[in-house]
Write a protein that binds this DNA or RNA. Structure first.
Length: 321
DNA sequence: GTGATTTGACCATT
DNA sequence: AATGGTCAAATCAC
């Protein structure tokens, strides 16, 4: 990613974001009508397909936005400097194929391995956001690379990276932790966005999961809230309840979907006005744990650029993590 | 045999 | 020093 703060890049970014959101809005609209008339329009896309497309649209939008976010930029710069020797070495022995080659009996001990270790940079400034869901399946192919007991947490945290990390350089990772107060639910924290090309390749993304039964609980630069009442229901209800709810009250769901789309859209228009603030170097800098921007999709849809939840917003402080 | 997962060690951050 | 994120050898599953 070059110099995203330049005007021409801003323009490109805006165009891409608008395109993706328009697309997503269109699919959401189709989904809405589909839910109202589930038996009609047999030739149109299925609800599952539409949901997949909507999610893809969001994913792409987030990718574009993260690409122009200063924090992401500094991360890229870090890669080209401090990380470079590591990445070169990694790409030289290229991904998964490197795996067992060095093993073969000897040189398995620490000294050899030690040369490799410490050769990574912990990412701090990527886009992160979290969802709580009854499922951990999000349609992407992930590979587990670690698990850790977390202090004061009942359940361990599992670490996943995109399976395309090495063949496509996709930097997306996620962490999954079972929620203490509701072991049926998982909190999934995504770090970075997929840059690989097989986004949502698997249609099963919504087969046994209900994407609307999940909700975003935080982001360090972006936070989306499903309307508060729905959050409560999502928190307090099981999967089946959510699904039943959707079936019994489609308008409830579709209202949510459409408000999500329209609010995003109206906010996008504001985006243009607030662009200097959004792209200000302050946001998403190393202080990335602070929520610099909040996209709220509540009924009173607001865009607050100067909110700083550091300290106040104790999302990480034990409630979920 | 190949790819995925487990698990203890290493390392960055605070 | 404590904690959490990542690595990579060992192990598992197919």
């Amino acid at each position: 990613m070059g110099v995203p703060n330049r005007p021409e890049n801003l323009s490109t970014t805006r165009t891409k974001v608008i395109k993706e959101l328009v697309e997503g809005q269109d699919y959401a609209t189709q989904l809405k009508s589909l839910l109202h008339r589930p038996t009609e329009d047999l030739e149109s896309l299925s609800a599952e397909e539409l949901v997949s497309k909507i999610l893809r649209s969001f994913s792409e939008t987030l990718s574009v936005l993260s690409a122009c976010e200063p924090g992401e930029l500094s991360q890229s710069q870090a890669v080209s400097h401090a990380d470079s020797h590591c990445d070169v070495r990694r790409s030289e022995d290229s991904g998964e194929s490197r795996k067992r080659s060095e093993d073969s009996g000897e040189s398995r001990k620490r000294l050899a391995a030690k040369d490799r270790r410490g050769c990574y940079k912990r990412r701090k400034t990527s886009y992160t956001w979290a969802i709580v869901s009854h499922t951990t399946d999000d349609g992407h192919a992930w590979r587990k690379y670690g698990q850790k007991e977390i202090l004061n947490a009942k359940y361990p945290r599992s670490y996943f990276r995109c399976t395309r990390k090495y063949d496509q350089g996709c930097r997306a990772t996620k962490q999954i932790q079972r929620m203490e107060d509701d072991p049926q639910m998982f909190q999934t924290t995504y770090i970075g966005h997929h840059t690989c090309r097989d986004i949502l390749k698997a249609p099963q993304i919504i087969t046994d999961s209900d994407p609307w039964g999940t909700f975003l609980v935080n982001s360090d630069t972006m936070m989306m809230n499903i309307p508060a009442g729905k959050q409560d229901r999502a928190l307090n209800s099981s999967t089946t309840t959510i699904k039943q709810e959707s079936l019994e009250s489609p308008s409830d769901l579709t209202d949510s979907i459409s408000s999500l789309g329209t609010n995003l859209w109206s906010e996008l228009k504001t985006f243009e006005l607030l662009e200097p603030a959004i792209l200000s170097p302050k946001m998403g800098s190393d202080n990335g744990d602070a929520v610099a921007t909040m996209y709220s999709c509540t009924d009173t849809c607001s865009l607050n650029l100067d909110l700083d939840f550091e300290g106040d917003f104790d999302f990480d402080g034990g409630e979920f993590l």
